[in-house]
């Protein structure tokens, strides 16, 4: 297939960027989106031009490194997958594809399509862990956990920290990410001990870093590659309210 790419190019963090048009030819329908980007970059390098910088690592949908805002969708037009799992068959021959970086004040652009997502690490550092001393390996099933809670905690823990929720949200809010991280602990007995400080500190950090506020628009849930539910946001609101009034 032949495609017209419009890609955001920006040489460094504090410089003006712009869209640059790149036609690409003879792309296989079975190529992945990032393979298509690799092909473009090979051509650019062969022509002595600077290749397009974009984040990626595992290329199998588990690490959360890849990003890209493609034609108005975080992680592209397909549902429930990351950009590295997106394939060119989702596009039409001759289509124009606009590729932008995640846009949010707390995610500054490093170069081209790469953004700095350390803000998420800072939120995790603020409370996204369990610090109690657990001693040796306990017996399996020594602490009984309801099946439903175990399942919900697992679902929340599926979050890979990619930032698509922030990218897709009209307010650049990080509520889905933070609520997934709060929920995966809040649902389990091991996480209950520090539940109060955890939710307060993580929310305070999130606000500090300049993420927007949630307007319950639910674009995050629609774009999340791991289908994290907004029920987690409600759980975090509950946890937060409980922490404040207790």
């Amino acid at each position: 297939m032949d495609l017209k790419l419009k890609i955001w190019r920006q040489t460094g963090p504090d410089v003006e960027g712009k869209f640059v048009h790149y036609p690409v030819h003879n792309i296989s329908k079975d190529a992945s989106f990032l393979e298509m980007m690799d092909i473009l970059n090979e051509e650019l390098v062969a022509n002595g031009e600077e290749p397009v910088a974009f984040d990626h690592d595992c290329r199998e949908g588990i690490c959360g490194m890849c990003s890209l805002f493609i034609n108005g969708h975080a992680h592209g037009p397909d549902d429930s997958i990351t950009t590295c799992q997106l394939h060119m068959r989702k596009f039409k021959d001759g289509e124009t594809i606009v590729i932008e970086p995640w846009r949010a004040r707390p995610f500054p652009i490093i170069k081209d399509l790469m953004v700095d997502r350390s803000a998420f690490d800072l939120i995790i550092q603020a409370g996204g862990y369990v610090s109690i001393n657990t001693g040796g390996v306990p017996d399996a099933n020594a602490i009984p956990i309801k099946k439903e809670n175990a399942d919900l905690a697992m679902d929340a823990a599926a979050c890979i920290g990619c930032g698509a929720c922030v990218a897709a949200c009209k307010n650049a809010s990080a509520m889905l990410f933070v609520s997934a991280k709060v929920s995966q602990f809040a649902l389990l007995p091991q996480g209950k001990i520090e539940a109060k400080q955890r939710v307060e500190n993580m929310v305070a950090k999130m606000d500090d870093l300049g993420f927007g506020n949630c307007t319950n628009t639910y674009a995050c849930e629609a774009e999340c590659p791991k289908d994290i539910s907004v029920a987690n946001i409600a759980r975090m609101n509950r946890e937060f309210l409980a922490a404040k009034v207790s």
Binding site: W8, R103, A104, R105, T215
Partner: peptide
């Protein structure tokens, strides 16, 4: 605060919103 949180808008507006009136 929400406007400040995204200083630079997208060229192609996000089209995934679930609650239109929001």
């Amino acid at each position: 605060q929400n406007w400040i949180a995204r200083p630079k808008r997208y060229k192609v507006k996000a089209i995934s919103e679930d609650s239109f009136f929001s």
